[in-house]
Structures are given as C-alpha cells and as structure tokens.
Design a protein around this nucleic acid. Structure first.
Lengths: 308, 308
DNA sequence: TACGTTCCATTCATATATGAATATCAGACA
DNA sequence: TGTCTGATATTCATATATGAATGGAACGTA
C-alpha cells in the first residue's frame, strides 16, 4: 500500500487557510504568500490525495463533501500546532487550556468522573480531554499530559507518584448468594462459580503468594474487560473480585469474605518531566491526587499485585 | 506580540522525524529528503522559535528539555495528519480508531460514564476521547465527531437527533427538609431557600409560561455550574432543580413536590454529515442513543426549556 | 451596457530551498 | 596508533517553488 502520509504538511496548512478564508486570494493574504502559490498547493494536495477538495466557484472555493471529511483532522493539526507555538513561546503560564488525561477504561469510567466534576468546579477554565484506554501510553510520544495507571511506569524522564492502593475484595450479587449460599471461608468459596478477571495471571500469582493454590481452570468465567466482569457480578453470574469502593456503591451486590486479604492494585499518577511545572498540568495533578486519595487505602501493608 | 504560529509545518514534520529517528541522516532517509536539508530545517525551526531543540552529539541529535515540551504537540499533529491520510484514502471503514465526543460537563460526568462503559464492552477497539465542555463546539471546525447537547444545534450540514427529554424536578437534602420542613405546594416552596441554576434565565421564562411568577431575587444562591448546584443541594443549602434520574440515585437527597411539572431539557445527538456513515462514528452514535434513552423521557407533552 | 470589483488561472523571471559531493569530527575496534 | 564507520557541517550547481504581472470570467451597480 502506498504511503499517502508523505504529503507535505504545508499543503494541509494551505488547505486549512483556504477553508477558513473561503478564497485563494484571501488565504494568500492571511498566510503571507501569493495567490498562485496557494492555488498550486491546493491543486497539488488534490492530486496527491486523488480527491477533489473544493468546488471552484466564481466567488471563491467551497469544500466538497470529501474535503469536509478531512477538515476536522486538519483543524486538529492546527490546534496542535498552535499548542506547540504556545508552549514554545512559554506563554502557557495560565490556568487555562486543555489538559489531556489518559487512564484505564475502568479508572476513567468509575473513579474519575467525580474527581473531574470537582475539577470543573475548581478550575472552570481548564478543559479536560479524557482518553480511556488500557494501552500503556508513551507520555513522551503521545499527546497525554497526565496518565493514571495501575502500575508504576518504567519510562525514564517521567514523574510518578503513588496515590494509594485500590482495595479489592470478593463480591457477588445478592441474588446469587440467596441461590447458592454465602461462603464463610476460602475452601467454601472455591466451590462456587468464580469469575476470573482480566489480570488473572497476576491474580493467580498473587493468590499463590498468599498460600492459596489456584489454577486457571478454577474460574467459571474469564474476561478481559473489568467492566464486563463487573456486570457479570451484578448479574449474578458468580463470585468475583472487584474494587471495594465500587462494590460498596452497588446496592445489588454484597461483599463476600470481606476480611480476606485480597491483594490490592496500586494507583499511580504520571506526567512527563517537561510538563510537571506547567501550571494547568500541575493544577490538574493536584486535584486528581486529592480527589482519588479518599477512595484509596494508604496502608502499605496490604499486599499488591505486581505488573507482569 | 509576534505570531510564531507562522512557522512552516514542514519544519515540525522535520523536527518530529529527527526525534523519531534520532539522527539527521536517519530522519532524512525516512523522509526521503537529504540530510543537509533536514539539518537546515531543524536549524530554521530553532531560530524561529528561539529555542535550542536538540543537543548535537556525535551519535546524533537528542532532545533538550524545551524540545521535549514541544514533542507532544508535534506528535498530536502527526496523529491528526495520519487520521487525515486515512480519511482521504477512504480506508477508515473499520470499527476501530478514535471517536471524539464532546458533551456538556454535566452530561459527560453524570450521564455518559455508564454508556461509555457499555461502549467499551461492545466495541473494545474503538477508543473514546471525551471533551467535557459547555461551549458550543463547531463540529466542522473542531475535532469532535459526535456532540451531545442540551439544545438543537443550528449549524447547517449536521445530522441531529433528539434522544429524549431529561426530566427535572425539585430536590433537597434530607437534612435540609428535616430542618426546614417539606413544602406541600408551590406557594410554600417559594418561601424556602431556592437555588438558581445556570440556565436561570431560561428557567425563569419557563416558569413564567407555567403561570409561575419568579424573579432572579427569589433565588438564595445562583451559580453557573450544574455540578456546584448539585453539590449545594446535597450539602443542604436549599431546594434546587436537578435531573430526576440523578436525584433518585443520591440517597441523601429527596424529591420535593415530585408531581410538579418542571420543564425538562432536551438531549440532542449531533454529528457532521460527512462523518455520519463512518462505521466507527455510526457505531458510537448507536450506542450513545441506546444508552442514553433509558434515562430520558420520551413523553413529548412535557414542557421543555428552550435555548436563549 | 459599461465600469469596477473580486475572484481564479497562466506566464515567466527570480529567489529559494534542495541535493550531490566533500570536509570534518568522534568513537569503536583491531 | 591507524582505520573504519556513522554522524553533522559546508559548499556550490541546480531544480523547484515562488511572486509580480497579466488575462479572463463572474457579479454587482450606476
């Protein structure tokens, strides 16, 4: 397959300017180049992409449907470029602008919302862009300012801080427990339908350290996404491990063996060194830290699950 | 102030390539230009920005701290560029990639999380980027694929669909009601501490239509952010209007005059015409529509508040 | 209808950025 | 120490993109 990626970004710049101004001449003025140049650049872009971007009209150029489809991407580039310019100029010393946060789906959807709500109250001029993904993001190469992760990032040149430990515990739907009974010790629990969760390898190893032999076959269900896991517990599919604070919030589920020491998950906040002292990033960091802490345990004696 | 924005995007492209390859020569090979050209471009960029981007080392070029700070922006540009290339090539016919959603803070933080959780289950390969803002976004000019709004967008060339009506009602903290008593009709309610919410102009007008005279002075508190409003109700600061489904989920608050017909808020889904048939956008649209509907009323006889 | 304005397309001399060739430097290795 | 390798800088002829000038088409207005 051919790489169309090669198209010169100058062309995109030209494209964008023409869209914004509505004519070649106008765009030329705005961009400080001549009108023929711009005309050629637009033509070049159309040829390289094999797409008609504009309708040439007497009053100027207007976008075709295909052109419209490209515009959002071009605009995104322009925004990034302007962000770059701001950063370069060292003028981003204000508490406004966008801060991009990346977090695991689970954290993003269950832990972060109230914290972000608070953030919107404390810093109304800071826009938050949330990227929910379990993929380990490279803070240096991806546009994320702060990462919320369940493990300590290993990259160099990042600042990390452990916020606390997310306590996990066994939970099951009340309906399930009524049907199958509530286990009162580990041996009984192992006779139940167990739901393996996405870190099951880690979990099995963690369990082994606590002297609890467990194999993959002991799980009635396994799944990769924590949300699914969660839903299955709620639906009464069996007994599974989930975050204690989350379980406590769900009226239809109940803790099982609440005092059994299930290893917890660490929660780490990460940013890139170069962004550490950007005011808005620092502000968001602070709110995240303060907002997430109450939900977490600071007890370091709780065993944790280590990353693979 | 000078516009540094003017810097040619080709230079950024060069910058990025040098970072990725680690050397001028390598980057030149990758980019299909000569090494001196690239060297000059890097130098030009440094001069124009007035920043040293690289340490020149015998083994190649490595980023300075200032360079690192610019990198995320440059990378964001590259991602957008590659998105543009994909869109242009017409290859984005798969159910993967990123979909950007914009919604009011309130919707984003209170209504969307469970829906997005579902989305992650149904379409694990679609990344969601959520931009929580009350600002009306221009879907054509901003990189957002789908907007969730409380009003019908007026732009041309967008596809909109009304999902339903968010029912509103009076709520107060139980502690407040214990202290001040529960009003049993509108006249009594007006003697209470009322919390005006951010659309209070709209609200006052809506109330007037229902034959209920109300002025700004009748509100004990006013605030712009719905979250703050919400928190004040929970904190027992008075009686306020909030979404019924949200109020029902909060154990510490109680509905006041639950049968009084408070005008609701419409919820609209919007996307740009050109994106309508992009598979991943269509998929997300569908999940949003199905996920938000259950929380909303489809009863069109409920009065609604119109935008200003 | 004629005039002024605004736009895009074309032409051609010119300025500019480019690449091949080369010089230079630093480290690896025998 | 000498040589090789892979890197960045420098030079200069050349290709390339650029801009001023010009032509032509559409539209509004007197």
């Amino acid at each position: 397959m051919e790489r169309i990626d090669r198209l010169d970004w100058t062309l995109i710049q030209a494209f964008l300017s023409v869209v914004a101004e509505g004519s070649l001449s106008g765009a030329a003025r705005a961009l400080g180049v001549s009108q023929p140049t711009l005309g050629r650049q637009v033509k070049a872009m159309e040829e390289q992409l094999g797409i008609a971007l504009f309708y040439r009209q007497p009053k100027g150029l207007s976008l075709t449907g295909e052109g419209e489809a490209l515009l959002p991407h071009a605009t995104a580039m322009a925004e990034a470029a302007s962000g770059l310019a701001t950063a370069a100029a060292g003028h981003d010393n204000s508490l406004q602008g966008t801060v991009r946060i990346t977090a695991s789906d689970f954290t993003a959807l269950y832990s972060l919302p109230p914290v972000l709500a608070r953030l919107r109250i404390d810093h109304p001029d800071i826009q938050i862009e949330l990227n929910a993904t379990d993929l380990s993001e490279n803070l240096l190469f991806r546009e994320a300012d702060i990462a919320v992760r369940m493990y300590r990032p290993t990259q160099l040149e990042v600042i990390t801080k452990k916020i606390g430990i997310l306590k996990l515990g066994f939970f099951a739907a009340k309906s399930y427990l009524e049907r199958r009974g509530t286990p009162s010790n580990i041996e009984e629990l192992m006779q139940h339908d167990l739901l393996g969760y996405d870190r099951s390898e880690r979990f099995i190893r963690g369990a082994a350290k606590l002297g609890w032999q467990l194999t993959r076959q002991d799980f009635a269900f396994r799944c990769d996404a924590q949300q699914v896991h969660c839903e299955m517990i709620r639906a009464g599919a069996g007994i599974g491990v989930m975050a204690c604070n989350l379980g406590a919030r769900m009226p239809e589920v109940e803790a099982v063996l609440p005092h059994f020491p299930v290893p917890g998950l660490e929660l780490w906040l990460t940013t890139h060194e170069a962004l550490r002292h950007t005011p808005r990033v620092a502000a968001v960091w602070k709110v995240l830290e303060n907002g997430l802490k109450p939900d977490l345990s600071q007890d370091n004696s709780i065993p944790i699950m280590h990353s693979p």
